[in-house]
Amino acid sequence: MEYEEAKQKIVEGLQKKQKVKSKFYFNDLAKILDEKPRVAKKLINQMITDGVLEYWSSGSTSMYGLKGAGKQAGAEHEEASDKE
């Protein structure tokens, strides 16, 4: 899959669910892309580097979300403007 196509699928797929939740497991993203995990990982890594996606970590588990989306930033006092 071409990167731009993958990006479009991920952004659309995640935005569709935005009202319900903003954080997703890696496997949820691989499913949206309909790719094997190793192929999906390369594409998703690139989206992280491009600032399309960002990580969220519980410490034990990692999740992905569209950059800046969701309520965590507010709850964790890490809005972009708040980074002292």
Partner: peptide, 20 residues
């Protein structure tokens, strides 16, 4: 202490645990 999940270094998903 409260947990924080966003903070990290750019491009890495691990290595930093957020605390407030």
């Amino acid at each position: 202490w409260k947990h924080g999940g966003i903070v990290g270094v750019f491009g890495y998903g691990g290595g930093v645990i957020g605390r407030y």
